[in-house]
Amino acid sequence: MYKRILVPVDGSETSTRALVAALQMARETGGRVRLVHALDELAYLSGYEYSADLLKAARDQGSRVLEDAQAMAKSAAVPADSRLVEAAGRRLGELVAQEARDWEADLVVVGTHGRRGMSRILLGSGAEQVLRLAPVPVLAVRTPQAAD
């Protein structure tokens, strides 16, 4: 059913769980995945003369995240490609929605922390943005919460 699965990755445990779920689905359906890492340049520019070095470091880190995700896909025998997207001033949900349209994805698989209350208000929810803006179905893979 789902042959083209888009997976935003950031190297976190949460996005890794989403990637594992996406790879399993792709393997079962004979599908493929596209891995996307968003680089928001504005988050790395400080106004100091070293900002170009910070941006290069952020690009290098994003490339490593994508390489690690590609290695997981290869290990799972799932065809995959990747894109490092510079998204200055764009929200994650907008970027993922555009990538899903451009690549003609059938599904987006995204990790979520399942934050509630004040932590969600303060930290925001990239997964919620993706759910609201994606032009295709979204599978949100939640990280298990620690017992209180």
Rank of each mutant, 00 (worst) to 15 (best):
V109C: 04
A21E: 11
W103H: 12
R142W: 03
R101N: 03
L39W: 07
S125H: 11
L23F: 07
E28W: 13
V110H: 00
S75K: 15
L139W: 10
Q24H: 13
T143P: 07
R90I: 05
R83S: 05
A52G: 13
G124L: 07
S119F: 04
V78N: 08
L122E: 01
L131S: 05
A57P: 07
R83Y: 10
D106V: 09
L45H: 07
M25Y: 12
Y2V: 01
A26F: 02
R101W: 10
R59K: 12
A127C: 13
A140N: 11
I5F: 04
A77Q: 06
A146G: 01
D102A: 12
R34W: 11
K3F: 02
I5D: 08
G117L: 11
S125Y: 11
A58M: 02
E13D: 04
A100P: 08
Y50R: 00
W103T: 10
A71N: 05
D102K: 10
L133Y: 07
Y2H: 06
A21H: 14
R142N: 06
L139R: 14
L95Q: 13
V9C: 08
V136E: 06
L95G: 00
R64K: 14
H113W: 05
V138I: 01
H37T: 01
I5N: 02
M72E: 15
G117H: 11
I5W: 05
A18S: 01
M1D: 10
L55P: 05
S75W: 03
